[in-house]
């Protein structure tokens, strides 16, 4: 199993757009993708949908998605939106 060595940094300003761009990297990924959400202080519904979409696309390629640097407020949002099971969360 190979892993993308460098995490993909997700911009805090526009999570949805950043994840759209990250999808391209998914095409070449195998094994696991690491998304670095350290810069994301708040997430909006579009961002959540994009994350969910990213997880779906990764599933289709049998690639696992790990989230890095998720702050506790955003973590709670993922929990309430029932999305934490779609990702592995790296503390």
């Amino acid at each position: 199993m190979t892993t993308i060595a460098d995490p993909i940094n997700v911009s805090g300003d526009n999570v949805a757009q950043a994840l759209d761009e990250a999808r391209e990297k998914l095409n070449s990924a195998e094994g696991e993708v690491l998304l670095d959400l350290s810069a994301v202080r708040r997430i909006d519904p579009n961002g959540l949908r994009a994350l969910e979409g990213f997880a779906g696309a990764a599933d289709a390629k049998s690639v696992k998605v790990a989230l890095l640097g998720v702050n506790v407020d955003v973590y709670k949002v993922l929990k309430l939106a029932r999305l934490t099971t779609r990702f592995s969360i790296v503390n």
């Binding site: 708040r42 997430i43 909006d44 519904p45 959540l48 949908r49 407020d73 955003v74 709670k76 949002v77 993922l78 929990k79 309430l80 939106a81 029932r82």
Partner: peptide, 12 residues
């Protein structure tokens, strides 16, 4: 689902 997402985001 839409309401759940909104409620989740609202907590921030």
């Amino acid at each position: 689902r839409q309401a759940r997402t909104a409620a989740a985001v609202f907590t921030q």
